[in-house]
């Protein structure tokens, strides 16, 4: 590893994201890894290693890693962390940075396209509209015009795929 390949500002960038502040307190003690259920199923998934790479400024290596998307946000790591790092919140911050940098996984990108095109990820049918009626909400259909009317003009100009995960 060469220092020239590292981005010393990366950890601050993560710390500025909501939930990302904890990265600055990490001692890399690996209590998180010891209790991680994802690591039990996927041996190469190691939260300590991901956070350490991030602290070292291995920006591209972290953001491009498919492993960051495996965190299931069970918060086992937050429970055992002596430093209150909130590891899964830090990983959410990293995921947000990765999505903005265009590294969202294909499934996330597909969801973003679906959301942009139809305003929803699930089909809306009679059941949903009955519930909406009970709550005093207008009915919606599969037509994009509906969600555009509800969300306003901004939603009508969806951002390119890869930014919405």
């Amino acid at each position: 590893m060469r220092l020239n390949d590292c981005d010393p500002g990366f950890k601050q960038e993560i710390a500025r994201e909501p939930g990302g502040q904890g990265i600055q307190a990490c001692f890399a003690c690996a209590a998180c890894t010891a209790r991680c259920p994802v690591g039990e199923l996927k041996p190469e998934y190691d939260p300590r290693r991901l956070l350490r790479l991030a602290v070292l400024g291995r920006r591209e290596e972290v953001l491009a890693s498919p492993l960051i998307w495996l965190c299931c946000s069970c918060q086992s790591c937050s429970e055992v962390c002596p430093q209150d790092v909130r590891c899964s919140d830090v990983l959410t911050a990293i995921k947000n940075l990765a999505a903005r940098a265009g590294y969202a996984p294909p499934s996330g990108q597909a969801m973003a396209r679906q959301l942009a095109a139809h305003g929803r990820l699930l089909t809306v049918g009679e059941f949903e509209n009955e519930k909406r009626a009970e709550l005093g909400l207008p009915p919606v259909s599969e037509e994009p015009a509906d969600y555009q009317a509800i969300l306003g003009a901004e939603a009508a100009a969806p951002r390119p795929a890869g930014e919405g995960a």
Binding site: A30, A31, T33, A34, R35, C36, G39, E40, P43, E44, Y45, D46, R48, R49
Partner: peptide, 10 residues
Amino acid sequence: VAYAGEGGQP
């Protein structure tokens, strides 16, 4: 004792 092993696995 539950701990992170050498390769980073629990």
